[in-house]
Computed example of a mutant assay.
Amino acid sequence: MAQSAPNPYQPPTALEPTTDSERAYDGSASRMSRFWAAMIDAVLALIIFVPLQYFGGVYRDFPKISAPPFPQSLLWALGGFAITLVVHGTFLARSAQTIGKKALNIQIVNASDGKPAAFGTIVLRRLLPTSVVAQIPYVGGVLSLVNVLFIFRKDRRCVHDHIAGTRVVKLDQSK
């Protein structure tokens, strides 16, 4: 029996995804849960940094505050990175979560196997590169914005997720 010609009116069949960005991310954290987790972390940072900066003289000429020289900005960035590690380090090491992520029951996992991301991966490949890029005069802020706007892609992964090979998932509350 001869094989029949394909039906041109038949709906297309789905192809198996071949890359991380094409795979469906069942269990991915919602954009809103990631946003609110980041807001919780930002408020914690402000509670710590504003008093430090006040006593460090950053607001001395308020309201005419000018950008500090690059070496001073770099010192504040290094201090901020260190304080971030102090505040969130235990949570990141134990459960691959910041305080905000823990509060919203979401977690950083490896994109390849779904296991909680290692502390070194989170710090050296996820936090450090974007922290360094943010310090580049004039373009650092724009690149930081582009980083977080990647959340609106289909895979819901920011640039820092792609660099580190991670994604953020909603934890199963039944466990």
Rank of each mutant, 00 (worst) to 15 (best):
A111G: 00
N7V: 10
D20K: 00
W76I: 10
K170P: 02
K175D: 15
N7L: 07
E22C: 00
P12T: 01
I40G: 04
L128H: 07
P71A: 09
R94F: 15
D155Q: 04
Q3T: 08
D61T: 09
T84L: 12
T121E: 08
L128G: 05
V168P: 03
P71K: 12
H162T: 04
A14P: 08
Y25F: 07
Q107Y: 06
F55R: 01
A38L: 08
V86M: 13
P137D: 09
I83T: 08
I122R: 02
L52G: 08
Q10M: 06
C158H: 08
I163C: 02
H162K: 12
T19L: 08
T90P: 00
S28N: 09
L143M: 15
T90G: 06
I65N: 07
V148G: 06
V86C: 08
F91D: 01
A29Y: 08
V169C: 03
S73Q: 15
P11V: 08
L75W: 14
A96N: 03
V159W: 10
A14C: 02
T13M: 12
S95E: 13
D20G: 00
G165N: 04
R23M: 13
F62R: 04
P129E: 06
V58H: 10
H88T: 06
T121G: 04
Y9S: 12
F152P: 04
G165Y: 08
I108P: 00
G80V: 12
